[in-house]
Computed example of a mutant assay.
Amino acid sequence: MMNKQDIITYFFENDGDIPNNILPVVIYKNALQHAVQKDLEVLFCQNGWGNNWHDIILTEDHFHSNTHEVLGLKSGQARLKLGGEKGEIVTVEKGDVIILPAGVGHYSVDNSIEYQFVGGYPNGAEWNLKFSLKKEDCSSILAEIASIPLPEKDPVFGDDGPVFEYWK
């Protein structure tokens, strides 16, 4: 299991444009060092986080209002902005895993294609793509985000994963 110093959390408030979530973003640094399975897609699928993809991250701030998301960095290094305009720029490296609650804004700040993430969603959910509360029905989006249940399993560690210490 991971040491506390290998887990980073960020809390982001609704900024009027990006809704974010009362749940924190959880980042596992070098998660694969601690996981039995070293293939991110297989690992995520074993823990019920399916509908996987392999790609870079959009360079435009966006969020998903209908599902949580896991991003595992398969190769390279990436700098992402999390949490909207007032959020944080984070640098992730190969083997790092980011668990994003529904509604949290994210985008790539680098104009790079020198990295690749594996993404996934609890129970293989079909994700939507939203760009701003100002362009959508704000109240229905906020209600949708609030209604998303906690995942059944941590995408990396399954039933007893550390995400459940932070997502209550």
Rank of each mutant, 00 (worst) to 15 (best):
N52G: 07
F44A: 01
G48Q: 04
L133C: 03
L32F: 07
I89P: 02
Y121G: 02
E88L: 10
V156C: 03
I99Y: 08
P24Y: 02
Q5G: 00
P155L: 03
K94V: 12
N66C: 13
P149V: 13
V26F: 02
N123K: 15
S140V: 14
Q77N: 13
A146E: 15
Q33M: 09
D159L: 15
Q37T: 12
G119T: 00
G84F: 10
Y10W: 11
H106G: 03
S108W: 04
S140F: 03
F117V: 10
V104Y: 04
L133A: 02
I56K: 07
G158A: 12
N20A: 08
S132H: 03
A143S: 15
G124R: 05
P149S: 13
F157I: 09
K38A: 05
A31L: 00
N3C: 03
A146F: 07
V92T: 11
E144N: 15
V92C: 15
L129E: 12
S75G: 09
G120Q: 11
P149I: 15
A143Q: 15
P101R: 08
F157H: 12
V90S: 11
I89T: 15
K86M: 11
F12G: 03
F44N: 00
G95M: 04
R79S: 14
H68W: 12
K135C: 08
W127V: 10
P101L: 06
F131K: 08
V70I: 13
F157V: 06
F131M: 09
I7D: 01
N111C: 09
A143Y: 05
A78M: 14
D39R: 02
G84A: 08
V70Q: 01
N30W: 01
S75C: 11
L80M: 13
Y115N: 02
K4M: 05
F12R: 05
L43V: 00
S65Q: 13
D15M: 06
L71S: 02
L23G: 00
L73Y: 06
I7Y: 02
H64C: 09
T59F: 06
Q46M: 14
Y166T: 03
N14Q: 06
V104H: 04
P149W: 11
P19C: 05
N52F: 10
P149C: 14
L23H: 05
G16H: 01
D160N: 15
A78K: 03
L80Y: 14
V42W: 03
H34V: 07
P151C: 14
G72R: 00
N3R: 05
P155H: 04
G105D: 09
S140H: 08
